[in-house]
Amino acid sequence: MSRSERTPNAVSLQELDFDSQDLQACVAMMQGGSKTFFAASRLLPPRVRTAAIALYAFCRVADDLVDEAAAGDTPLDVLQKRLDAIYAGTPHDHVEDHALSLVVQQYKLPRHLLDALIEGFAWDAGGRTYDSIEDLHAYGARVAGSVGAMMSWIMGPQSMDTLARACELGVAMQLTNIARDVGHDASIGRLYLPRRWLVEAGVQPEAWMAQPTFTPAIALVVTRLLDEADRLYKQAHSGIAALPPDCRAAICAASMIYAEIGHQLRREGLDSVNKRTVVSTTRKLMLLASAWTQVHWIRVADHNPEPLAAIVGLVQGCRDAAQQTGNKAYFPNRAMPQRVAWMLNLFERRETERLDRNALRQNS
C-alpha cells in the first residue's frame, strides 16, 4: 500500500514516533487479516503495540505479494530490495515500509529474522515439499518462528532461552494453521502435511492431491500434527513468564486462542478438508479473560529444554546481533513488593538448584 492510499483514522492508539495515518493504515491491514493477532494485540502495552502492528503489516503485505504474483513477476527480489532500503533508512514509498523502518531503527531489529521470513515465502513460491516433521519445523521456523523472535526482541531482548521459546511458539501456531487449512492449501496446489506420515497412514500424496478427500487416514495425520503443535505450545509456555510483565497476558492469550483452534478442530471431527475451523468471538473473549488471570501463575521452567533444532540458527543470529549492537535485556520497573517477590523467587530457584547439585554429587 502506498502512502497516497492510506485509510482515514479509525482506531485510537498511542503512536510513539509513528505517523498517525501510517499507523491507522497498518491497523486496517491487521483488522482485515489475523483476528487472533488483533484480539491479543489489544492486551499489549502501547510501547509494544504500535511496533507489533507495523511488523504484522509488513509481514502480511510481503505474504500477499508472493501469493498474488503473476507469471514473470519477481516478488522475492522486490522484497529483498525493499528490505535493503528499510535497513538503509531510505524506505520505499509504502506505508508498511515506513512503519517497519521506524521499528528497525528504534529496536535494532536483526535483519536475519526478516530474511528468514522471506526465505519461507520463497519456499512457498517454489512449491517446496515436506517429507518429515523436521522439514515442516524448518518451514515453520522461517514463516512463524522468525515472527515470534521479532516480537520477543521488540518486547525487550531476553535470554536466548526466552527467544527460543518464542520461536517455538511461532512454530506451534504455524502447525495449527496447517492442520486447520488442509483443504484450502490443497485447493491452491499446496501440501504441508508430512509426506512420510501420509504414506505411513496409507495415503499416496500425489494421488490425494489430485482428488483431496477427508478420510480416517487424513484425520490420523492431522491428529499427529496437532499433537506436535500441543507439545510445542507446552514447551514454549514457560517462556511467557520470562517476558516483561506488561507483555505476558497478550502472548498468553495468543497462545491459548491458537491452541483452541486445534481443540475445536478435534471437537469437530478433524475434517479440515471440507471446512475451516473458526473459534467464536465469545470463546475468544473468554480465553482473553482467562489469559489475564492465568498469566500470573506461569513460572519460568527450572530446566530449559533443548531448543527445537530448526530454530537454533535464528536464536544464534539474535545472540550475535545483541553482541554487535549492545542491545540490552529489558528489565521492567517494579514496585518494591514486586522487587522483593522477584528476589525471593530468585533465591528460591538458586537454593533448589544448589540442593539438586548436592543430591547429584551424593548419588554419583
Rank of each mutant, 00 (worst) to 15 (best):
I251C: 09
L16H: 10
L65F: 11
R349C: 11
N177Q: 06
S146A: 14
Q211C: 15
A249E: 09
V66R: 01
H263Q: 15
D115I: 10
H303K: 10
M336I: 15
L225N: 06
V340F: 10
M30N: 02
I178P: 02
L198F: 07
K284P: 07
T7H: 13
M155T: 01
L79C: 07
V104Y: 01
T223L: 12
E5R: 08
P244C: 09
G189P: 12
I311N: 00
R142V: 07
P110I: 02
R196V: 14
T162P: 02
R47T: 11
Q31E: 11
M30Y: 00
D131C: 09
C247N: 04
G326Y: 01
A166D: 00
V27E: 06
L232G: 09
A71D: 12
G317N: 00
Q323T: 07
L314D: 00
Y330S: 08
L83H: 05
R354A: 14
P337L: 05
D181E: 04
I257M: 15
F121I: 04
R195N: 14
Q204V: 15
A70I: 03
A166G: 03
A289P: 03
L109G: 03
P216E: 12
R49I: 11
S290Q: 15
L308N: 00
K108M: 12
L191A: 11
A236S: 15
Y139N: 04
L163M: 13
I257F: 07
Q235W: 08
C252D: 11
M151E: 01
V312R: 02
E200G: 14
A149T: 02
L198S: 02
A186E: 04
R195C: 11
N358K: 14
R190T: 14
H94A: 12
A322Y: 04
P307N: 05
K284W: 07
S132Q: 02
V203R: 02
G126F: 12
A210E: 15
W153N: 03
Q362G: 11
P45H: 04
T293C: 11
L265E: 01
G72K: 02
E348K: 13
G313V: 00
L65G: 05
Q21C: 06
L109D: 03
I218H: 08
V66F: 09
A116Q: 06
D135Y: 13
A291M: 05
G313F: 01
S255R: 12
P244T: 07
I257T: 08
Q362P: 08
A241K: 03
V182Y: 08
V278I: 15
K275G: 12
R319M: 01
K234S: 14
I257A: 06
T213G: 13
I311W: 01
E228N: 13
Q235Y: 13
Q294D: 12
A25D: 12
S2V: 14
T282L: 14
I133E: 11
S152W: 05
Y139F: 13
V95D: 04
S146P: 04
V147G: 04
G202R: 07
S41D: 00
S132V: 07
Y233S: 05
R196F: 11
A179K: 03
F38T: 04
S12K: 15
Q294P: 03
R299Q: 13
R299I: 08
Q31G: 10
F214V: 07
H112R: 02
R142H: 13
I311C: 04
W123T: 03
V312Q: 06
R224V: 05
D271P: 09
A51R: 01
W197Y: 13
L102H: 01
I298Q: 06
A141W: 08
S290D: 15
A201R: 08
R165I: 05
K108C: 10
S255P: 08
A116P: 01
